[in-house]
């Protein structure tokens, strides 16, 4: 604090503190607090009493229609039928008003109730989807690691500088394209009438429902998040002194021993960061599972959260679901850090 003051002077220091305060409160604490608060209450509409509200509204609508018809009747030429009609409408409206008055005495005004209900009402089917989403994200992370580790190692240690640059360029170019466009490209490839099935058709294979089976989600996700795994691993492997690998080889270590004893331990922080990023991105992905299943396969948990907010219009339960996912992700991060024995400082490097 005093160092900050010494380096920047009182004005700049207070500006820095103010901006970081705005950042921390406005971008991190504020939204989370609002969400957590939302998740701890629900609107109590009085159980079965809600039917009364619905009936009152319907009677009011009837009165509006009757009043409309009455205006039509009043436009008719004066005649006994016209008067009778108007009198009849008036009588019906009066009747409805009596019913409404009686119902309104029993109507329950909705009230806000604080409780843990939003967390406990998650049914078996949603819990299953939650667990499935976490497991699927772990699987995506594993696949991405298996694909990326050899790639990162090759670029960092085996390839000539020129070739390494070309591989890097090849990896980066697709990322200059918007994620959604890349996912839609995969949709076109894997569609029932798509490119993949066309090619399979040439060798006489029946069309495969890639999307409906959920395979498409895995393919698109691994593709979409591969870079987030490659770069952290590449960064750490690159800092490994090549002479260590040569020394190990000179002492007769086989390739798998070199990787197990030297490269992997050195790359641990990079692997941890890559895994955390890939896991968080896939567990929190909404667009990829939505587009790549066309709504026919089981949804991901993120889609359930979206639906709670935007289809059921139940923001409270939606917040509880979102908070649950957040907690699961945080637990995963700490597990990864424990597993790879890396601290926050290593990751920040």
């Amino acid at each position: 604090m005093s160092r900050l003051l010494r380096s920047f002077g009182p004005h700049l220091t207070s500006l820095i503190l103010l901006l970081s305060g705005v950042w921390v409160i406005g971008m991190i604490i504020g939204p989370q607090l609002i969400m957590v608060e939302q998740s701890f209450w629900y609107t109590d509409r009085g159980g079965d009493a809600v039917v009364i509200t619905v009936q009152i509204d319907a009677h009011y609508n009837d009165i509006d229609v009757l009043a409309f018809d009455k205006m039509d009747a009043e436009d008719l030429a004066p005649s006994p039928e016209r008067d009778a009609k108007i009198a009849e409408i008036d009588a019906t409206i009066a009747e409805k008003r009596v019913i409404i008055a009686e119902l309104e005495t029993r109507e329950v005004i909705p009230k806000k109730v604080y409780s843990l209900r939003n967390y406990t009402i998650m049914g078996g089917s949603h819990l299953a989807i939650f667990i499935k989403t976490i497991l699927a994200s772990v699987a995506v992370t594993l696949i991405a690691f298996v694909v990326c580790y050899p790639m990162a190692y090759t670029v960092a240690k085996l390839a000539t500088p020129n070739r390494a640059a070309i591989i890097m360029l090849g990896l980066i170019i697709p990322y200059a394209i918007n994620e959604l466009l890349r996912v839609f490209a995969w949709l076109m490839i894997l569609n029932y009438n798509g490119v993949a099935n066309f090619l399979l058709g040439l060798i006489g294979v029946e069309p495969i429902a890639f999307l409906e089976s959920g395979t498409g989600v895995f393919i698109a996700m691994v593709y979409a998040y591969i870079l987030f795994m490659v770069f952290p691993i590449y960064n750490t492997v690159e800092t490994l002194d090549t002479s260590q690998i040569e020394a190990a080889r000179d002492l007769g270590a086989p390739t798998w021993q070199i990787h197990r004893r030297i490269v992997l331990p050195h790359a641990k922080p990079g692997i941890a960061v890559g895994c955390i990023m890939t896991f968080m991105l896939s567990a929190g992905s909404y667009a990829v599972p939505y587009i790549m299943t066309r709504g026919t396969a089981e949804p991901w948990f993120t889609q359930l959260i979206y639906n709670k907010f935007f289809e059921s219009l139940n923001w409270n339960t939606g917040s509880a679901y979102a908070f649950t996912l957040l907690v699961a992700c945080v637990i995963f991060v700490f597990l990864m850090m424990r597993m790879f024995k890396v601290g926050i400082k290593d990751i920040a490097k």
Binding site: D57, N61, I63, D64, V65, F68
Partner: peptide, 14 residues
């Protein structure tokens, strides 16, 4: 259509 809209909820309690 105006009449139908009344029945379907275009008004709320009058």
């Amino acid at each position: 259509i105006w009449r139908s809209s009344l029945k379907l909820g275009a008004s709320r309690r009058g």
